[in-house]
Design a protein around this nucleic acid. Structure first.
Lengths: 126, 126
DNA sequence: ACTTGACCTGGAGCGCGCTCCAGCGGCTTC
DNA sequence: GAAGCCGCTGGAGCGCGCTCCAGGTCAAGT
């Protein structure tokens, strides 16, 4: 029902240091609850939230903007429009970045084709 | 026919410092030719090469691997297969990265839909 | 002759996002 | 009760990819 930091890290594919860093840096919705020994216990909600911000990070959102989003959610009801705007802007940025990457990829693939052709010819002439 | 570093930077969308840095770091195929005053003059080939490595960079290839590729090309004929392997591996990495980004994006869009719905309901009830 | 401005070099500095470390506390196992 | 192990904290350190700076050279304009 609740995981140690090592278990959470493994499940999320993050380092334990990263989990502590995210918490210290205000990226989480709350201070993660502690056991009697003062050890963190990650609950389902913590895990789901961290999964979401991991997706934001993995699509290029900077830490500081993730924090802004977390601040909004922590702020409670009433700023949904702002949250939506933030996510929407990020979506647009990701789409633009994907399109750009595809253009670059096409150029790189063209280069690959040139080499493949060249090596094919060499192979035939050998 | 040949450009100053400022002109080259503008055309390539890079900073002049970045151009000098790339050269110092061995990412270019040759030392860029100089004017009598010792100022760099970028020729067409220089520009085309930098354009290519900019695409590699923009798709996430680390500097050190760009250098490896440049080393190969500088090495002359005979290592085409290695070059091809490097580019091919990069292509695979980019494709994987694009696929992953799309998965993350879908999850983020789901979240956006939730907010949109919520705000829509609020609008109707207002 | 002097100013201006673009460029040069070597090297320091920086923002980002972690990652590592020392020193310590507290369960569990023998 | 000693040893091992996991986790804690605050803070330093690091790799990446630039970016900035001081101090200097050179060519052109006035």
């Amino acid at each position: 029902m609740s995981l140690t930091i090592a278990e959470a890290a493994q499940r999320l594919g993050l380092a334990v240091d990263t989990l502590r860093y995210y918490e210290k840096d205000g990226l989480l919705l709350r201070a993660v609850p502690r056991s009697s020994a003062g050890h963190r216990r990650y609950g389902d909600e913590d895990l789901r939230w961290i999964e979401l911000i991991t997706r934001l990070r993995a699509t290029g959102m900077p830490i500081r903007e993730v924090r802004r989003y977390a601040d909004l959610v922590r702020g409670g009801t009433g700023n949904e429009r702002e949250r939506l705007e933030l996510l929407h802007a990020h979506r647009e940025a990701v789409l633009a970045q994907l399109a750009e990457a595809q253009t670059h990829l096409a150029a790189i693939e063209y280069k690959i084709d040139l080499y493949t052709e060249r090596l094919g010819a060499e192979y035939l002439s050998a």
